[in-house]
Design a protein around this nucleic acid. Structure first.
Lengths: 333, 333
DNA sequence: CCAGCCTACTTACACGTGTCACCGCCCGCC
DNA sequence: GGCGGGCGGTGACACGTGTAAGTAGGCTGG
């Protein structure tokens, strides 16, 4: 406890205590392959490190290796909701278990040019929930970023980079399958009012469309629904006029708006409604909202595995199948 | 475009192109005070940097200065909701404007020992939504972390480190003030079921209690309310028995549960309910939920200012007053 | 006319790590 | 007995930056 100053504990300190060279300390700490270390010195080094509370400097390691252990997650500028929040939390712990640090950056592209960020950080990988120009992608790859996990392959026809798209389609399919299975033959889709969530809304709608087509049913009657009762009531009226008896909503929130619209209209002819996310208010609504949840833990694990595999140059895991999304049956559909 | 390889653009490259030394480049890029640079060379350097797309290596800078531009935000293990998510987003942009990078780390204290993280990162500051032991705080300070912004001063009696507590109390006060102003004389508090949000719930409840005391009204009748209608109905029954006519809820979600409980009981004697956060479902509920919102942008700006000031060793800004929280009057209270 | 100061730079070192090249040693094998 | 080769380890360099210390030249005051 008689520390002279607040100096950082470096590997040199560990080496001195353990009576070995600094290189040996590095080899022990990193389990460097093809480098044999006797069991005796190994424990001596480990003991010294533990005693001193040694933790290697991330900055120095990054500088030396040219690649940091940071996984940069670039968000678009839509408001991140509870489900995205918990997904990020799970992703962070899943990556931490593999030795990576997740850094989330909200995508205010105007504020700071984005390239400034990944050039400064030199992340091991980038998870982009936003479209990149091919030029940007090439620049990042050239700068040493091992992988760019894109949300949507914007234009490129190869099947890659769709890691995040397929699960969204599954959500739509699950919604539609439930409604069709319940005997509905004319269904609607409640599209969100917020332009910024389009990258989620489009594939979900596509999933609904696919499921309809495969069941030989006409595609969904799509209405844009704001989070406001009056507006939603107008949409409900149009659906009634079109013979729609059940609607898939983009969201639990949108679904609650639809329910509010139905309520405002007197709610004579009940409209079946199904949401997404299973937020707590869904269960508390009247009627209790039937919804579809994604297994955030499993999804985060999948995403994490994708990133880790790509960083090591291995092919990523298969896109998870339908066990990722599951139905929560309640009263509204 | 005839780049031989994928080498990183360093300040040496900029120096070579601009025809100056590397040190000069550094001085120009950082606007180093007490270092005079002629306007001519300055523009030459800036031009060269822009042309090459130079961005300084965060790792090298961190290694050299001993302090990174990272602000580490340690979250407890409760599920981060939409409001916390948006707060973090705002905080991130506010800090980015000052040249800092926000790194959020969910607090699974078991998974990795926490000190391993900040030892590796050497953050400029730590925003902790969780209690630290005095020993940990001392260790961090010794390791060079400029500031520890704690959510709650656990035990230490000095007025510092309560930056995040006061706003929470304001929320409770605002809720209670509205109900008392509407003529209610016996009010209740709907406490969350989740033990993990206690650090938010306690100061909010304290705010309600303070407001009651200052108005000469008995303290709130507190009931723990789970996010489930049956359970909430039982609480509502007890409140009725105690003569409570209005309740402050920890949350909009808890408030919706209370409303569901009232509805389940037939809703004869209406119970006034007021929530917090103004989540979208609040507006869509029946009756539409009266609630209290915090100005997340202003709060993030305040938090950011606190961090920046402390990093530079200056005293932080004053705790913002009541303009931070505002009432959203609807039908439920 | 020279000491001294200010401007506008440059040279040199340090930060803490990973890793390549080397080196002594002992063991087994021809 | 010589000697190739694995074991166990060391010495030295590079990564890219910030900054203290030094230096050449012009200008000013005495």
């Amino acid at each position: 406890m008689a520390e002279s100053s607040t100096r950082r504990v470096t590997s040199a300190d560990v080496a001195r205590i353990a009576g070995v060279s600094r290189a040996t300390v590095s080899y022990v700490m990193n389990d460097t392959p093809h480098q044999t270390i006797s069991a005796d010195t190994r424990t001596r080094v480990l003991d010294a490190a533990a005693r001193l509370g040694y933790a290697p400097s991330a900055a120095a390691r990054t500088l030396r290796t040219g690649r940091s252990d940071v996984v940069l997650c670039l968000l678009p500028d839509w408001p991140i909701g509870a489900e995205v929040g918990s997904m990020l939390g799970n992703l962070s712990t899943a990556l931490a278990r593999q030795g990576f640090t997740l850094v989330v950056h909200p995508g205010n592209r105007e504020d700071r040019p984005m390239f400034e960020i990944w050039k400064a950080i030199t992340p091991a990988a980038v998870i982009a929930f936003t479209d990149f120009s091919p030029g940007e992608i090439e620049a990042m790859r050239a700068a040493g970023v091992a992988l760019v996990v894109g949300l949507f392959g914007n234009g490129q026809p190869d099947g890659r980079r769709r890691e995040l798209e397929v699960p969204q389609q599954l959500i739509g399919r699950c919604q539609a399958a439930h409604l069709l299975g319940a005997g509905h033959t004319r269904i609607g889709y409640a599209y969100p009012d917020d332009e910024r969530v389009r990258i989620f809304a489009e594939p979900r709608l596509a999933g609904v469309r696919d499921e309809c087509r495969e069941s030989g049913v006409a595609g969904p009657a799509t209405e844009t629904v704001a989070l406001e009762a009056e507006q939603a009531a107008a949409a409900v009226r149009r659906w009634h006029a079109a013979g729609v008896t059940a609607v898939c909503a983009y969201n639990d929130e949108v679904a609650l708006a639809v329910l509010a619209g139905v309520r405002k209209l007197g709610g004579g002819a009940g409209l079946a409604v199904i949401g997404v996310d299973d937020i707590p208010p869904a269960r508390l609504a009247e009627p209790a909202l039937t919804t579809v949840t994604t297994d955030q833990v499993a999804f985060a694990a999948y995403l994490s595995a994708t990133v880790v595999a790509a960083v090591h140059g291995r092919p990523g895991p298969d896109v998870p199948t339908s066990e990722l999304v599951s139905l929560v049956k309640r009263d509204s559909a």
